[in-house]
Design a protein around this nucleic acid. Structure first.
Lengths: 137, 137
DNA sequence: TCAATATATGAACAGTTCTTCAGATGAGCA
DNA sequence: TGCTCATCTGAAGAACTGTTCATATATTGA
């Protein structure tokens, strides 16, 4: 997870980089999403690129949960979970509902939910295809 | 992108962490994918979490391309592209076809292709909803 | 064989990320 | 009010990531 994509300056036009299939390059460049959109997308994937956060989000797929249960489910310290949730909150992937001194988190981002569902379906699918991998490494 | 998930030791049973909704915690834990699968999934998301690699992969969605054209399309140095492709190759996300001194890369992983399609659809969709975002930041 | 070209690689550095620890905040309760 | 509990936060260090520069490999054509 990082940021870059500063206008992806026109290296092609500048002739700084040589090209083999020029029309193809132009066409693909045409369809390439804008720099900011790419950065945003990469950032979302970055949020999903940590096993700890992945566990939290998968747990939240089925409904809201409080911080301490999330810590138990994901096998992380409550501090680590809190930090992770803060990051996810900052990106509006989850939201918190406070009830007394507890905080209940829920998955708020439909796009992330789809990505998680897809990933989950994939692991279950490959599990079915390659059962020799018993998942315990 | 990192690795962890060492057996996610049974903090629940150890009573090291207190739990509010015990049955819920048990049920979610039951459905949680195995540690290795989670690590693998996180790793895939990690591969997609860099704008540069994202550009390369999006370019490859439409067919194979040589390294120099990928550099042109993605606005990166050829060295950076080569390093990125090596990483993607190591994870079998892309494969190389060599023709003379050129190397043509293609997207090889169906799961990654689906994730990219989904992400692409999402940016196009939000583009349609929020046209005020012109993508130039 | 030699030079030029396309890609690959290694090492090193800067920047980022994750975890941990210590302490802060703030709600509930005696 | 003072105490406990659930969560949050900041700072610090270790580990990781991405880029660059220099150089290596390998193929083509002269």
């Amino acid at each position: 997870m990082n940021s870059s994509s500063d206008e992806q300056s026109s290296a092609v036009d500048d002739c700084a980089i040589r090209v083999v299939d020029a029309p193809r390059v132009a066409a693909v460049r045409e369809r390439m999403p804008a720099g900011q959109d790419l950065d945003d997308t990469a950032e979302v994937f970055g949020l999903l690129s940590d096993p700890g956060r992945l566990r939290l989000l998968l747990a939240l797929l089925e409904g809201e949960m409080c911080v301490c249960d999330l810590a138990a489910v994901s096998g992380q310290s409550e501090s680590a979970v809190s930090h992770a949730l803060r990051l996810l909150r900052a990106h509006r992937v989850v939201t918190a509902r406070r009830a007394g001194r507890m905080a209940f988190y829920r998955l708020e981002d439909a796009h992330v939910r789809m990505l998680l569902d897809l990933a989950l379906a994939h692991t279950e699918h490959t599990q079915a295809i390659h059962p020799e991998r018993d998942g315990n490494h």
